[in-house]
Amino acid sequence: MKDTKQHIIHTATSLFNEKGFFNVSIKEIADEMEISPGNLTYHFKKKEQLLATIQEEILLASKDIIIPEGKYITLEHFELIFLKFYSIQDQYRFFFTNILYLNVAHPKVMRKYKETTSKRLENARKLVDYYISTDRLKPENDEISYTYLIHNLWIVNMFWKNSSSLIDLEKTNYLAKESPIESLWHMLKPYLTEKGFTEYKEIRAAKKILKRS
């Protein structure tokens, strides 16, 4: 029974990614699996329940996007956080493509994701404060607001795929095709101290060596 339930989740996610959450019916999922709709609704009575379960998978996959405790955290952790989140977005494309509509149509389900996002932004602030205390980021002052920076970094990473879909990437070099990482670094660089910028260059140089090998 557990395997059937997981198969339903996997099939539904694939169809949602392909056609969009609102364009796929319970019957289509059942037909794709070659089971009866009744068999499917035994496990998930409504699509909303499927959405809630898939959201749980997304939140579970995001759990390891944390700040390590008790050890020195390099600026590379900044990149790893966003790369991990970007891979989750790719795996559950429908969720992030439709997230604004899902929030309107299924507010009770999406409340948990909103709460988790708030906690994630709080953790981002802790990471920024750590980088300030270790002289990698400039101290906050009247001209520097990390509250705004964190929010803007989140927006870029959260809606990168959506914004990319509105640009003909074959005819422009305006955006990096693989991920938002370069754009995110460009947003962060003006806030780096001399020590932070040196560390940044070392990290990027190491990445280039890995790509060539």
Score class of each variant (00 low, 15 high):
M1W: 06
D3S: 14
T11N: 00
T11P: 01
A12E: 02
F16A: 06
E18T: 14
F21R: 02
F22K: 08
V24D: 01
I26K: 05
I26C: 05
A30P: 00
D31W: 00
E32N: 14
E32I: 03
E34C: 06
E34Y: 09
I35G: 00
P37A: 01
T41I: 14
T41K: 06
T41M: 08
Q49K: 11
I58P: 00
I58L: 08
L59D: 07
L60W: 10
L60E: 15
A61Q: 10
S62C: 12
E69G: 02
G70H: 06
K71E: 15
K71H: 11
I73K: 01
I73G: 00
T74A: 12
T74D: 11
H77G: 07
L80I: 11
I81M: 12
F82H: 08
F85W: 10
Y86D: 04
S87D: 15
I88K: 01
Q91L: 01
Q91K: 01
Q91S: 01
Q91I: 00
Q91Y: 00
F95K: 05
F96S: 02
I99S: 02
L100V: 10
L100M: 12
L102D: 00
L102H: 02
N103A: 12
V104I: 15
K108P: 01
K108A: 07
K114T: 08
K114A: 06
K114C: 05
T116R: 10
T116Y: 14
K119R: 13
N123M: 15
N123F: 12
A124D: 14
D129C: 07
D129T: 10
Y131P: 01
I132Q: 05
I132R: 08
D135L: 09
D135E: 15
R136D: 00
L137F: 15
L137I: 13
K138Q: 12
P139S: 10
N141Q: 03
D142E: 15
I144E: 02
T147A: 03
Y148K: 07
L149P: 00
L149G: 00
I150Q: 08
I150G: 04
N152F: 11
V156G: 05
N157W: 09
N157M: 13
N157Q: 15
W160N: 01
W160S: 00
K161M: 06
K161P: 01
N162D: 04
S165C: 06
S165Y: 07
L169I: 05
E170V: 07
E170M: 09
K171W: 07
A176H: 11
E178W: 01
P180A: 10
I181R: 07
I181M: 15
E182R: 13
W185R: 12
M187V: 14
L188T: 06
P190W: 08
L192D: 02
L192Q: 02
L192R: 03
E194L: 13
G196P: 03
F197K: 10
E199D: 04
E202V: 07
I203M: 09
A205T: 13
K207T: 04
K208H: 06
K208A: 13
I209Y: 11
S213M: 13
S213T: 14
